[in-house]
């Protein structure tokens, strides 16, 4: 089974089955992964689904587009490979993807 892995800021890992066509945020909330809220339901309006993509994956998953970038720009926990997980639509080829979660969602 294809999986994605979430690593919390203090090192706990959570794995969730990769569901093609759904967003990484949806997969996280479906599997009760702590640390991802997704308050706006995936509209890139709230910023509570921030993840930091493992640099080894950064190129494959691509970088944020303009609106998403604006939401991330002011975030104090922002890193070069930060994304909003609601804007990352999963495909099979992402089997094994690992993302880190910031300490706070804001």
């Amino acid at each position: 089974m294809a999986v994605v892995t979430f690593v919390s800021h203090d090192g706990d890992t959570h794995q969730a089955p990769l569901e093609e066509g759904r967003s990484l945020m949806q997969v996280a909330t479906e599997n009760a992964v702590p640390g991802i809220d997704g308050d706006c339901g995936g509209e890139a309006a709230c910023g509570t689904c921030h993840v930091v993509v493992d640099p080894a994956w950064a190129e494959r998953v691509g970088s944020s587009e303009a609106g998403e970038e604006g939401m991330l720009a002011m975030n104090p926990e922002r890193e070069p490979t930060s994304r909003l997980s609601c804007q990352m639509v999963l495909c099979e080829a992402w089997d094994g993807l690992t993302v880190r979660l910031p300490e706070f969602q804001m």
């Binding site: 890139a44 939401m71 720009a73 002011m74 975030n75 804001m106």
Partner: peptide, 9 residues
């Protein structure tokens, strides 16, 4: 969106 996140903070 940037102003929004800035304002919130």
């Amino acid at each position: 969106p940037r102003d929004f996140m800035f304002s919130k903070q």
